[in-house]
């Protein structure tokens, strides 16, 4: 066995000892190794120090308030899920980074405002024949560069990001626009995707006729 193999075996034995997994034979083998070589004893101390520091790390304070707050959120979500189940609607879904209650999410008011403004824009402010077909963008939806071809007569406006999002770019696009994929869940909950998909089809039909 070469030095590397010796050291690897030593590491294995040291680790097993710390977890109480050594057999009697292995224990004897380890004692022999440690007795013969000062460097191995140093290695043993380094291993012990790792576990000592891990234990200190585990002493990290997790406050009662924090656990209680998490429990309160959990209860709220369980209540929400129960209500969803009883009404037959979709249960709330986990979204890392803080779904919690919908009202607590900072992006919600913005998205609701954007959705309302977008509806206004579609119904009142926009003549159908002034719209560029979004078909190219949709066809190239996996290509982030496709955004540059997107001309909805509102480029640069406050609605642009939300429109790019709701028109179906999803996870790949969201980092470019500063909107996370979490927001897609909200859009889904508002059923805006279906609405916009229908709207896109209508626009396409209008353009074909025109």
């Amino acid at each position: 066995m070469n030095d590397h193999d010796d050291l690897d075996r030593l590491d294995e034995l040291l680790s097993a000892r710390m977890d109480g997994r050594l057999t009697n034979a292995e224990h004897a083998e380890l004692e022999t190794l440690l007795a013969d070589e000062p460097l191995y004893r140093e290695r043993a101390r380094a291993f012990e120090e790792v576990d000592h520091h891990l234990e200190a790390l585990a002493e990290e304070s997790i406050s009662e308030e924090r656990l209680a707050s998490t429990l309160a959120n959990l209860r709220a979500r369980l209540d929400l899920d129960s209500a969803d189940a009883s009404t037959g609607s979709r249960p709330s879904r986990f979204v890392a980074g803080g779904l919690g209650k919908l009202s607590e999410r900072p992006a919600i008011p913005l998205l609701l405002a954007a959705a309302a403004a977008f509806l206004f824009y579609l119904i009142v402010a926009q003549e159908p024949n002034t719209m560029e077909a979004p078909a190219e963008v949709v066809a190239d939806a996996k290509d982030p560069a496709g955004v540059e071809e997107f001309d909805f007569n509102i480029m640069g406006s406050a609605l642009e990001d939300e429109l790019v999002l709701v028109l179906g770019y999803g996870d790949e696009m969201s980092p470019l626009r500063g909107i996370t994929s979490d927001d897609m869940d909200v859009i889904e909950q508002l059923d805006l995707l279906d609405f916009l998909s229908t709207r896109e089809s209508s626009v396409g039909e209008l353009e074909e006729r025109g």
């Binding site: 924090r66 959990l74 369980l78 979204v95």
Partner: peptide, 16 residues
């Protein structure tokens, strides 16, 4: 925050 959400979600799975 993510870890806290994951704890919640884990217990929601347990609940479910």
């Amino acid at each position: 925050a993510t870890a806290e959400e994951l704890v919640q979600e884990t217990f929601i799975r347990v609940h479910g």
